[in-house]
């Protein structure tokens, strides 16, 4: 539709794809590069971290690659195992100069991608591939965009803050209904006293620079916080959020901040159910947090 000079194949080389995109963006062109799976973004790590992220700073603003957006499918898909499942946002969270975005639905994806493409800084845009065909909703055909670095309060509450991004947000929603109406088989583990708990569910949306204000305000109100992500817990994005919230909400906290994530192992093939933070594990963390 737009022509082969605008939409084209590259050789199979991730460092090449990102380096090429940087060069085009440096010349003032808008570039939307795709990495087939975020698991394969690591060959381009040097180009993203050492080059794209630092291009504007190191040149004193003379050259920049703000028109570069790198899209990559991410997170678990049921059977993707080690290299078709990874969540890679934590590796880019510590890279000043980059923006990192993860949408949760079709509307969010369109609005946030439009904003990322127009953003005057390079963006790593991670798309939960589990939702490619399962998230169905009315999406405006017209042009619109959603703000970066702004978390979305999906559901407001005052008893506990539950924060996540991408596909695990759906597991969070399931966890909330488990909490309200646990099946008989597990009801003895969900105390009656907390079944009416009002949970504030937040979609972080932008991983870097993240919306610290919304998170801090929410936890200052609820006094409790559970963070959910698919990536391994150690040095995950949850660690950063927990530290910042702890620093700003120390006097408001009623219980330790809990993190529910993938275990500190590679992402397994069989056993994905027991690896990913599913509804039960999230509900269990909410129970621990609310009954502390």
């Amino acid at each position: 539709m737009f022509g082969r000079d605008r939409v084209f194949n590259t050789p199979l080389s991730e460092q090449g794809i990102v380096g090429f995109g940087i060069g085009m963006a440096d010349m003032g062109h808008t570039v939307i590069a795709e990495i087939q799976f975020s698991d394969y973004i690591f060959p381009a790590f040097d180009q993203l971290v050492n080059e794209a992220a630092k291009y504007n700073y190191r040149s004193g603003g003379q050259f920049d690659v703000g028109r570069l957006t790198v899209r990559a499918p991410c997170q678990g898909v049921g059977h993707g195992a080690l290299y078709h499942s990874q969540s890679v946002e934590q590796f880019f969270m510590g890279v000043p100069g980059l923006k990192v975005v993860v949408p949760r639905s079709a509307v969010q994806a369109k609005g946030l991608l439009a904003a990322s493409v127009r953003e005057p800084n390079p963006v790593v845009f991670l798309e939960p591939k589990m939702l490619y065909r399962s998230s169905v909703e009315e999406v405006p055909l017209d042009d619109f965009s959603l703000p970066l670095s702004k978390a979305d309060v999906v559901m407001s509450g005052q008893d506990v803050t539950l924060v996540s991004w991408g596909a695990p947000l759906y597991a969070c929603e399931q966890a909330l209904s488990l909490l309200r109406n646990p099946p008989n088989s597990i009801s003895q583990h969900i105390p009656l006293s907390i079944r009416d708990a009002k949970v504030e569910l937040i979609d972080l949306r932008t991983i870097l620079p993240w919306d610290r204000e919304t998170l801090v305000q929410s936890v200052a109100k609820t006094g409790r916080c559970v963070i959910v992500h698919e990536a391994p817990v150690t040095a995950g994005v949850g660690a950063e959020i927990a530290a910042e919230v702890q620093k700003n909400c120390f006097l408001h906290l009623e219980s330790p901040i809990l993190r529910v994530g993938g275990w500190d192992t590679p992402f397994p093939h069989v056993g994905e159910l027991f690896y990913k933070p599913d509804a039960i594990r999230i509900a269990d963390a909410l129970v621990k947090c609310l009954t502390y």
Binding site: Q15, F20, I22, G23, M24, Q47, N50, E51
Partner: peptide, 24 residues
């Protein structure tokens, strides 16, 4: 274009810049 220390990173960038020139 501003020099950076990591070696060879400018090579694929130059390829992209060449492609951009062709389209400018």
């Amino acid at each position: 274009h501003t020099i950076s220390s990591p070696l060879a990173t400018q090579i694929p960038q130059a390829a992209g810049a060449g492609y951009a020139l062709k389209r400018t």
